[in-house]
Design a protein around this nucleic acid. Structure first.
Lengths: 146, 146
DNA sequence: ATGCATGCAAACTCTTTGCAAACGC
DNA sequence: GCGTTTGCAAAGAGTTTGCATGCAT
C-alpha cells in the first residue's frame, strides 16, 4: 500500500508532462516510506547512500515540484526552522511535539466535516488544509514528568 | 478591546520578568492592531516611522520572545517564505489565499471541540494549534473567474 | 546602580538560481 | 536527437548572534 502511494506520485508527475527520473522516483519513494515527515536535508542525507552524486538542489527542486502539483504537503514550523514534507494529502492533522520536534499523524472523520463547514461559511474555494496541534507527546511528558 | 489584548501581552512580558521597553510595547500594539498577520519585516517597516532607529534584530527577538511565551503565534507558510505572526492565541483557523497570500481569521466553536477530541485521543498535552486552510479567497476567485 | 535590551553589522542557515553536462522520452 | 533535469557552486533571502551603548527597573 505504501507502493500504491508512490505510484500516485509517479503518475502525477508523468501526467503533468514531467520526466520520471531515478532521482525523482527515489525521492517519492523515500518520502512515502518514511513516517518522519523529513526535511529536504534529511531526504538528501538518506538518499546519498543510493545516489552518491545526488544534489541537494535537486531534492529541493523535486519537493517544490511535488508541492506545486499538490501531491505532497509542505509543513514547516516544527520549531526547527526547516520545511518538512508530508506525502499524505488526505485531510489529517499533525501532532507536533514541542520538546522533541517529532511530527506524527492523526486522522479523524471530525476533521473532514469541519473542513466542509469552513468552506461553506468562508466562501473560500478550499484547496487544502494544514492542521497542526502543538503539545508535549506522551513520551516527552513521561521523561519530563519525573 | 484591542487595547485589552495589548495589555495581556504587556502583562505577560512583565510577569515573565522581562522589561517592558517602548520597542516591545510598540511591537505588541502594532501586532494586535494589525489584522494582516504581519511578518517581522512588515512590522519593522511600519514601526520605522515611530522609531527611526528600531532594529530589525529587535523585532525578531521580540517576536521570538512573545512566541516562546505563547502570547503570540508564529504562522509561516503563507507561500511567501516568511514567518507571519498572529496575536490571537484563542483557537481559530487561518484562511490563506494561495493567490494573494493574504491571511484572514476564522472562528468557530466546532474548532474547539475538535481540539479537545484530538487531545483526548492522542494523549498529547495540547499547548496550541495552527489550523490553516489554503484556498482561493472570494476576491481572487472573482478576479480569476473572468 | 544594575543588569537586561537595543542597535548595528557580520555571520549563519536554509533555499534558490545559472549554466554546462547528462539522460529520459 | 531534443529538450528537460541534474549537479555543482555561488548567490539570495530570512533570521540569528556578538558586543558595546543605553535604558527600565
Amino acid at each position: 500500500m505504501a507502493s500504491d502511494r508512490v505510484q500516485v506520485l509517479a503518475n502525477g508527475l508523468r501526467q503533468s508532462g514531467l520526466r520520471l527520473t531515478h532521482q525523482r522516483l527515489a525521492i517519492c519513494r523515500t518520502l512515502v516510506t518514511s513516517n518522519t515527515h523529513p526535511t529536504a536535508v534529511q531526504l538528501h542525507t538518506q538518499l546519498r547512500a543510493e545516489f552518491p552524486t545526488l544534489s541537494l538542489a535537486t531534492v529541493y527542486s523535486t519537493l517544490n515540484t511535488l508541492a506545486a502539483l499538490g501531491l505532497v504537503y509542505e509543513l514547516g514550523n516544527a520549531g526547527d526552522g526547516q520545511k518538512h514534507y508530508d506525502a499524505i494529502t488526505a485531510p489529517h492533522a499533525n501532532l507536533i511535539c514541542t520538546q522533541c520536534h517529532r511530527i506524527s499523524d492523526f486522522e479523524d472523520t471530525a476533521l473532514k466535516s469541519v473542513s466542509q463547514h469552513v468552506a461553506r461559511r468562508s466562501g473560500y474555494q478550499i484547496q487544502g488544509a494544514r492542521i497542526a496541534y502543538y503539545g508535549i507527546c506522551p513520551a516527552c511528558a513521561r521523561r519530563r514528568g519525573r
